[in-house]
Write a protein that binds this DNA or RNA. Sequence first.
DNA 1: TCAAGTCAAGAGCACTGCTCTCGAAATGTG
DNA 2: CACATTTCGAGAGCAGTGCTCTTGACTTGA
Lengths: 242, 242
Amino acid sequence: MDPAPHPLGPRALARQRTMARIVELGNTQLIEQGVAGLSVREIARGLGMVSSAIYRYVGSRDELLTLLIVDAFADLADSVDAAVSAAGTSEGGDPRARFLALGDAMCAWAIAHPERWTLLYGTPVRDYAAPADTTNADGTRVMQAVLHIAADAAEQGSIGRGAASGSEDLAPEVTSLLESHLAEFGVETAPATEFAALTAWSSLVGVISAHVFGQLGADAAAIGEHILRPQVRMLADLVAPR
Amino acid sequence: MDPAPHPLGPRALARQRTMARIVELGNTQLIEQGVAGLSVREIARGLGMVSSAIYRYVGSRDELLTLLIVDAFADLADSVDAAVSAAGTSEGGDPRARFLALGDAMCAWAIAHPERWTLLYGTPVRDYAAPADTTNADGTRVMQAVLHIAADAAEQGSIGRGAASGSEDLAPEVTSLLESHLAEFGVETAPATEFAALTAWSSLVGVISAHVFGQLGADAAAIGEHILRPQVRMLADLVAPR
DNA sequence: TCAAGTCAAGAGCACTGCTCTCGAAATGTG
DNA sequence: CACATTTCGAGAGCAGTGCTCTTGACTTGA
């Protein structure tokens, strides 16, 4: 980011440049061959070094995956944030419009980067998955954005018209977990509102994954965008009904 | 299934018994090691034969996966069907109650068989995924159940109160695809209703996957069932509001 | 009885992730 | 400046994978 805060020796600089090349090569490999075809050795070849040498940088295949995951999370969150703030100042603005912008941006990103989406929301890496400390920071940004939108919508009194089904009978352990999240994220709203946000977000991911993973059949995949748009509008009712 | 329709020589019988053992071994392997740890060679060892011999039966690893996928789809659909019909005759009965039964059964199955759920709704097998002809039969059963419920609910006039956001502006190509589905499944209802059913189903899958894949964090995973129950009730509003 | 088929075994190829050791180069320090 | 330390790439190698090909024993239907 900044060229001269700590001098940062040329050694460390070269290192972080190879690291950058690694995620770059990893991403192209991901795009071309899918997550299953991601090979540490192949990346080493791309870097022009022998297979064993790359373990100075990544340590294990799972670590490489984690690298690509945080990269993808950040990229996704960036485009979503951009779209949301374009749909109104992040504090003000119509909550529903902001949710639609968020959902549409998510769809667009997923369609543009299906393999990366798969990496994020497909089968998790067994017993590794998300070393929470590393991924959470960027991994929860979209969810937090949904939460803010839902909170604003609730404040404007648009929640509770019927979308709140189920949130009235939350178990106490759920409520307390939600409250701890709210405190952590610094959002002041009812647990039921966060619950709606959580559900809307999970549903959004599900609807998008159904498209990216081709679960609706080949015919549906061809017109995926036309299906996703109204689905996003439907899910908007969960947090910000008209 | 049946012991004496066509005589079915002892040769073919032995063959289909080994096939059964293969999916049995595959499932235990799946449960214990996850989909990534599924190995053709290991199954061969379990069968007491050398690694190359098993290729007389499966042909490729992807074929083995497909075998396990159709098995899991059938199992899931069976338990869902059982739960739904227990909640009222499949034709009559309160649609909302039936949807809740369906959703809860899906959650229960997923929690009981997380690795098999992952196989069904996690990362698809690249360029193989669902050889439609083989998987579709059982793969769409749950979706069809949701569709029937939604159709019944629509007939009783409970749809359209607000849950139908988005389904009013369906693109013509989407409408025609939905109509062809309806014809194929033999269900008579409005495309908008099927659209709601489709969205509810995808959302359900998303909400469950979020839990199974641990996307909500370790704390949430511990109390997953308490989270899923109200989420199912929330999604019920999409097809059968109270 | 005899040809046709089924099936398991064995050897082997190309590939993977990963570990170890070794020598060269860059690095910071007395 | 010289020296000890760390960093890094190369090479060899291990255990494992999916998959193919060939060979020989066995069962089967004509």
